[in-house]
Each structure stands twice: as structure tokens, then as C-alpha cells.
């Protein structure tokens, strides 16, 4: 089944880019291709720097504790034990899950599981952050904390991309791409209209 017939976009350093679109339009497929867990049929994806990915459904190992989960992914990112420990406590404090560090993933509530899902994407301070509806299950305070974090990261030069459904948060986004009919349109300044403006540098893909 063909989901995307022409997707051309770029994510620039230090900006927060939103990807919007109707259910089933191919937003997650697009992100999976950008991240590298799904192979595109055609076209190229260029990634520079380290990538952090927060998938829509928490992809975590149920029988590992939160601490073990950090250790496993931290090793993948090439972090030392001290760096992993520092990142774990920093994010646990920020997102308020310090009391659950010794809990197994399958013992956590949906919201706390999502906090770990997000933290794993953030723990190595990536250059490019790909977030697929990262706040699902968050309470209001955690939702606001998440946006503070995203804005801090963007200010530090991280390229943040997120799939979003909420109209009210579009004011927080620097640019907005809409996935529609298998195509990706830049709709940043064109509410309700379409635009096929392509990016100039960074990441692009075709399928």
C-alpha cells in the first residue's frame, strides 16, 4: 500500500516543526522513515548529528526497570555510566518520575510510561528530536513542562519535529507541515491553503 507519494521537507537547527494531518494520513509513516525504522521505497533521507525518537506507542521492554531502560538505551547512545545516571536523574526530576526509577515498565501507568518513552529520546541531548504525539497521557503540568523542555532544546540548537493534533499548540511551532493525500505541504503561513514548498537543506524524503 502506498502511503506517501511525494514528501519533501527539511528540519532546521533550532526550530520546532510540527507535522499535522488527518488520522491515517501518513504522519507516523513519514516520521518512521525520517527516523530510520522504516525504509522508503524511493528518495533519500539525510540525517546529520544524533537523533532522538519518541514513538507514538512507547517502545520499551516491559520487564525492565526504568533504570535498566536508561542503561540499555544510554549504552546505545554511547554514553558513560555517569552520563546515563545524570540524564536519568535530571529527566526524572524534570518530568516527575523519580519515585518510579526502580519500577518495571509494565508496572507504570500510561502517563508515566510515556514520560519514560520521551526521556529515552531526550537523554543524550540529540541534535534532531523526532516526537510522535509525545504528550499522550500527560497531565496538564507535565504537558507544560514538556513544552518548556522542547523550547529549551530548540534554543540550544536542537531541531525538534513533532506530530501534533492540537490546534492551540500551533502557535508554539516555527513551521508546520501538513500530510495530505500522500503529499507533504508547508502550511506555516497558509491556514487552510496548501503549499508544496520544498526545504532547502537538512532532511528530505520521498516515497
Amino acid at each position: 500500500m502506498t502511503v506517501l507519494t511525494g514528501a519533501d521537507l527539511e528540519i532546521r537547527t533550532g526550530e520546532i516543526v510540527g507535522i499535522v494531518g488527518a488520522n491515517g494520513s501518513g504522519k507516523s509513516t513519514l516520521m518512521n522513515i525520517l527516523v530510520g525504522v522504516l525504509e522508503q521505497d524511493a528518495g533519500t533521507v539525510e540525517r546529520t548529528g544524533t537523533v532522538g525518537w519518541c514513538p507514538q506507542d512507547p517502545l520499551l521492554y516491559d520487564r525492565l526497570t526504568v533504570g535498566e531502560t536508561f542503561r540499555l538505551f544510554g549504552a546505545g547512545y554511547g554514553m558513560t555510566a555517569e552520563e546515563i545516571d545524570e540524564a536519568k536523574h535530571r529527566l526524572a526530576s524534570k518530568l516527575d518520575f523519580e519515585q518510579y526509577l526502580d519500577y518495571r515498565i509494565d508496572q507504570l501507568s500510561g502517563g508515566n510510561r510515556q514520560k519514560i518513552n520521551l526521556s529515552i529520546a531526550l537523554m543524550h541531548d540529540p541534535d534532531v528530536l523526532m516526537l510522535d504525539e509525545p504528550y499522550t497521557g500527560f497531565d496538564w503540568e507535565t504537558y507544560l513542562t514538556f513544552w518548556d523542555l522542547a523550547e529549551e532544546l530548540a534554543a540550544d540548537g536542537t531541531a525538534v519535529t513533532m506530530i501534533s493534533h492540537l490546534i492551540e499548540e500551533q502557535s508554539r511551532l516555527d513551521r508546520i507541515y501538513e500530510v495530505r493525500d500522500g503529499q507533504v505541504y508547508d502550511v506555516t503561513d497558509q491556514e487552510g491553503e496548501t503549499d508544496t514548498t520544498a526545504g532547502e537543506r537538512g532532511e528530505e524524503t520521498d516515497e
Binding site: 530510520g36 525504522v37 517502545l59 521492554y61 516491559d62 538505551f73 546505545g76
Partner: peptide, 15 residues
């Protein structure tokens, strides 16, 4: 079954 999807995330993490 347990690792099939999640191990893909390990690859993104650098494994």
C-alpha cells in the same frame, strides 16, 4: 515477539 519492534528503537539509539 517481544523484541521485534522494540529492538528497532535500539538501532535508532545507535546499536
Amino acid at each position: 515477539r517481544e523484541a521485534k519492534d522494540t529492538d528497532g528503537r535500539l538501532a535508532v539509539a545507535g546499536y
